[in-house]
Design a protein around this nucleic acid. Sequence first.
DNA 1: AGTTTGCGATACGGCCCCGTCTCGTATCGA
DNA 2: TCGATACGAGACGGGGCCGTATCGCAAACT
Lengths: 222, 222
Amino acid sequence: MQTDTPAVRRAPAAVPAPEPCAPRRGRPRSEAAEQAIYTAVEALMEDGVGLTDLSIERIAAAAGVGKATIYRRWPNLEALLVDVVARLEAPPPQLCGGSVQDELVGMVEYMRRRGLAKRSRWVLKSALGQLHDWPELRAVYQERVVKPRRELIRTIVRRGIDEGVLRADLDIELVCEVLIGPILLRTILWDDAPLDDPELARKMVDAVLNGVGAAPAGGQSH
Amino acid sequence: MQTDTPAVRRAPAAVPAPEPCAPRRGRPRSEAAEQAIYTAVEALMEDGVGLTDLSIERIAAAAGVGKATIYRRWPNLEALLVDVVARLEAPPPQLCGGSVQDELVGMVEYMRRRGLAKRSRWVLKSALGQLHDWPELRAVYQERVVKPRRELIRTIVRRGIDEGVLRADLDIELVCEVLIGPILLRTILWDDAPLDDPELARKMVDAVLNGVGAAPAGGQSH
DNA sequence: AGTTTGCGATACGGCCCCGTCTCGTATCGA
DNA sequence: TCGATACGAGACGGGGCCGTATCGCAAACT
């Protein structure tokens, strides 16, 4: 009721929220319940339940929580799912130091590991599917996940071009796509593609840097 | 018409289907009704109705058709939508002759055009997007559309390796992903990436074949 | 002719879900 | 201690859709 900015609000992280206007008089909300709800949604998805098949009642049952406990926090299913997706994508892809090639391998390796985490893999795929006509979800996802990641890799690529490690005659966007496309393909689009080879990132970056074309003479292409 | 092999059957194209076993004795099925159903679904989607929000009753109403007329042709909503989506998909990539490199460019160019069409045709875009969180639908789509396409590119790549045009030391799957990943990224995952450059396919294949790394460097990798 | 099947329409029982509300209980601030 | 608010559980009316089964009529075949 009242205050408690209902739902689609704050990022789940940070924000200790001093609540200046609302001392909240009665029993405080259970952090455990909130956690159980998030966990239940993730568990359901992990079990192969599609976003479409989720419902408030089903989530409440899975979480061992009353429906009212959910409605107290979110106005409807969509708002809840927005928060769920946002939460999943929180971890920062940060990596630093080393050669450009190492940074690229690190980036791809990060994507691989995330893909291996079945939970986030499944949700990622689902969320991406819904992005096309679920504006709110799409906005959150693009803003919190896609944009930073694209910016990060663009930074690495720019450095690579500056240092002469990467070809300067190609469009920078194209280079980014060529580098990141294969691993995204494997983690998001193709369910059955294996991700367990720990050398995968290195191999991919190698293939893309050196090219998949056979060297006309001995060692290298151009 | 023909037998009512109920639904998930034939590809919508071709197949005059002589129907050897069933002369169909009574009134034949109305081709017009079938067309009205397809048209109604597309119209609904064009109006922004999500795949998820479609229902037999809604489609029947929009098509001006009885529910039974739909159930006579498809066993359930899912089967109907599978046919709708399959109908929307562009004709098979189909390309032949020429060098391996040309074939690869042709393949990527096909994907590019398809991406352009997808954007202009709201329906296809929306359908494909939402497909990804409807497991059953997704499976059929994979089987009918994605798998043949993957097989096609695998064939080209195998030929490239045989002819010595492509590196033989890489996993064939990896080569496929590196080749097709970038264009898929642009067409499916990044809605805002430009697709209008007619040279895009050539550039992409060039980048992947020759590598994005600046020439020699220390012979890293293996 | 008579038979058989398809047609649009609509009624039916059943299921699942929504969002609200009410229980009895638990846990906070004052 | 008391009032306020939270909790799990679930009842409740309402709604949408499913898939089947009828209507009465239309259009083909034998």
